[in-house]
Design a protein around this nucleic acid. Structure first.
Lengths: 192, 192
DNA sequence: GTCTATACAGTGATAGAC
DNA sequence: GTCTATCACTGTATAGAC
């Protein structure tokens, strides 16, 4: 059990780097340091179960580190939204690290994990919309702003990777952050 | 020569639907209606050359239908930027159709086509920044707004596919369009 | 030029030894 | 539990008949 959990981060990085179809079992073995037998012992469903476990792990991390803290904005914490921007900037390494659910949404992997992927972004948008509502945005406007913000983050990852330039990630994040009036860290030096 | 050109749109759709690694030669043959021998006759470099030809074709279409028309904003046409939003909405079918260069930017395909992908987005941002500059945005602010707008479009594709909901594409596009003050069609009915 | 046949490495998955 | 060996299959690419 704990062995299985320990393999998931390595699997996640392999899926991030190579995509679902590109992450062959040979690479997954190399990434985890386990043989095929061990992997199939932990994940009887094969590659699909490994990817599902990784997506669930990512969702769990975001729930604890992003979605739940956003709820603190309801308690009157104006810095909660700013903390979200800081968290995703670190997590996605300023665009150098891919959003797995976003990447899967573009390919045929979406058919396999449609409900999981939609659930992830639904929760994100809902939590952010609540926080925006608590900080003054009107009801429907809060959800629109939440949708636009999450889209901006995903677009920032795509564009910064396309241009191979983490600074454009920072630019998009900073503009989005100031527009919706979030407090918190504004990156002074855009490097690394 | 003209036969080769006729195959490219079919190849493009196959790469869009299945991704680079997922688009097997069998599927590329089925999509084009050609045998392997014919494909290798037109594209001696194999799959990589087919994908490169597709990316070049997409770039050429955007140059003629998006980038060049944006330059008309310099001639004092305020509707040029609005026309860009209309064009990309139709082209990407409100998020149902993937941006090939954006999808490749997320995967390992980026290593193969890095210069091509970066060039595509560089041209887009440059053309849009010029148009924004001509319609009143200050110099550095114009480029920032251009970067943010292109990122918003890419994020709109990712998010609308993740939620399997073209309306969120329209929402993000409409918000971005009004924020930068572009005239043109504002989608009244968000359906299809 | 376009097809069929084929080469050969690599795929996901399984069975069985230890 | 973890490994090695092997499975049937698909991948890209090539060769050769027509």
């Amino acid at each position: 059990m704990t062995q299985r959990a320990a393999a998931i981060p390595a699997l996640a990085e392999a899926f991030r780097e190579h995509g679902y179809e590109g992450a062959s079992l040979a690479r997954l073995c190399a990434a985890t340091g386990l043989g095929k037998g061990s992997l199939y012992n932990f994940f009887p469903g094969g590659k699909e179960e490994m990817a599902a476990a990784v997506l669930a792990d990512v969702h769990a991390w975001f729930t604890g580190s992003v979605f739940e803290p956003l709820r603190k904005a309801e308690a009157g914490d104006p810095g909660a939204i700013g903390a979200m921007f800081d968290a995703v900037t670190v997590y996605f390494r300023s665009g150098r690290r891919v959003c797995l659910q976003g990447a899967f949404a573009l390919g045929r992997e979406r058919d396999l994990f449609a409900a999981t992927i939609a659930g992830y972004f639904d929760r994100w948008i809902a939590a952010l919309a609540e926080a925006l509502h608590a900080t003054g945005h009107g009801g429907p406007a809060a959800r629109l702003a939440a949708v636009e913000t999450v889209a901006a983050i995903q677009g920032a990852i795509v564009l910064s990777r396309a241009l191979d330039n983490p600074e454009v990630f920072q630019q998009v994040i900073d503009q989005t952050r100031t527009r919706i009036g979030a407090t918190g860290t504004r990156t002074a030096s855009p490097h690394s």
